Amino acid sequence: MHKKQSGRRRAVVPPRPWRVALVAAALGAVAPVQAQVTLDVIGPHEYDLPVDFKPFNVFVQYATFQDGDRQWDGDGDRRRAARTRTIVGLSKYVRFWTPESNPKIGLAYEIIVPEVGVRNSDTRSSASGIGDPITGFAAWYKPSANSTLGFQTFMQVPVGDQDIGGGDVWKNLSSVFWDVQFGKLTYTADAGFVFFGESTAADATPGTLFHTNHRLGYQIDDAIEPFIALDYERQQGWKNRAAGVKLPESHETTAGIGVMFKYYGNQSITVRYSRGIDGESHGATDSLNLKYAYAW
């Protein structure tokens, strides 16, 4: 699929379009409501990226349905919480290209707009709106024809609706990512940090968050690929300036299973269920996740 490079710049047909559609799906995506592990939206082939290609575009629409009636307490036990149902949509546009000066490097720039709806069955209240938008870039290269290594960094801008948790804290999401293909077996993953600015409303600074996400898939054929997912994050405690105290750290590990469907050569749909298996002082994940990707 990836031809050997020559010294002269030449146009190379990009890899199968369904792959590039999947690729854009996770670069920088993070839900505005912190209930699930950061970047757990990624799927198989998420970082199976091309080099030396003609520029192209990708649109991705995510949808996450989170059942929030459980949470991890400070002792690591799953406890009853307010009966909330959260729906998060992420609408994303990505532009891919390679620089003329070095076609062996791939680049991408993207813009993501979150849409959030939250309903609390206990209080019979609800809220919805646009979350903090996300924008940034990614760069990568291919150590071999069947592997990819790259870096991505994104800013989440605090201009979203206050009712759904936006509009106060700047965030920077930076991570390394990699992908390796072993015939029908596929492995894609990332590891990185989220850095937060100060919260004026809370008079506190959120602690730095570490996350890592892993997807192991098996290609049954060109159209169907089941996979398993493992996600983890740990956040340092918030530092309250006025009280001079630091809130406890929080963490969660989740496991999931899903399947990816590729069709029409340039589109895909991915379905995944994820559930928290360990945590502390963190919302307990219990979610159904959908993703539609279209490349042109």
Rank of each mutant, 00 (worst) to 15 (best):
I269A: 07
M155I: 14
P226T: 08
P32M: 02
P133T: 00
V113Y: 01
A242V: 13
F195I: 13
T188L: 07
T186F: 00
D231A: 04
S287R: 12
N120F: 08
L107T: 11
T270G: 04
G237D: 05
G7E: 15
I228V: 15
V159D: 09
S199M: 09
N146Q: 08
D190M: 09
K171Q: 13
P15N: 07
K291L: 11
K4T: 15
G117I: 01
I257M: 11
Q236K: 04
R19A: 08
T270K: 06
V180W: 00
G207Q: 11
S121F: 13
Q235L: 01
I111Q: 04
P17K: 04
T205A: 07
G160R: 09
H251G: 02
Y263A: 10
S125A: 10
S175D: 08
F137T: 06
G43Y: 06
L90S: 05
V60Y: 02
N172I: 11
E110S: 14
T186D: 11
A35K: 03
T254V: 12
P226C: 06
I269Y: 07
P114R: 05
T135P: 00
T148D: 10
E46R: 04
D179K: 04
F196K: 04
W97N: 09
E115Q: 10
W72D: 03
N102R: 14
S287I: 05
R95H: 15
I257E: 01
V259Y: 09
W18I: 03
I111Y: 09
V113M: 10
S175Q: 12
R19K: 12
G276E: 06
G89T: 11
Q66H: 13
Q152A: 15
W178P: 00
G166C: 11
S199C: 10
G150T: 13
R275A: 10
V60D: 07
P143N: 08
L27F: 14
G244M: 03
P114L: 00
V159Q: 12
N266R: 13
I112L: 12
D73T: 03
Y187T: 04
P14Q: 09
R16D: 15
Q71A: 13
S174Y: 01
I220R: 12
T123M: 10
A26S: 15
R19E: 12
F182P: 00
I277V: 15
L173T: 11
Y264D: 15
D161K: 07
D163M: 04
S144A: 12
E110T: 08
R234L: 01
I134G: 01
L209D: 13
I42S: 07
A284Q: 03
S91E: 14
R275L: 07
P248N: 14
T188K: 07
S121Y: 13
Q36W: 07
R275D: 06
A31V: 05
T186N: 12
V51E: 10
F196V: 05
W140C: 05
P15K: 08
W97F: 12
D73P: 05
V113I: 14
S175L: 12
T64C: 01
P99F: 08
H2S: 14
A29D: 12
L290V: 03
K54N: 12
A293E: 06
R124I: 00
Y109H: 06
T253A: 10
A35T: 05
Y93I: 12
P99I: 10
G136Y: 05
K3H: 14
G160T: 14
R80V: 04
Q5Y: 07
N172R: 10
V23Y: 02
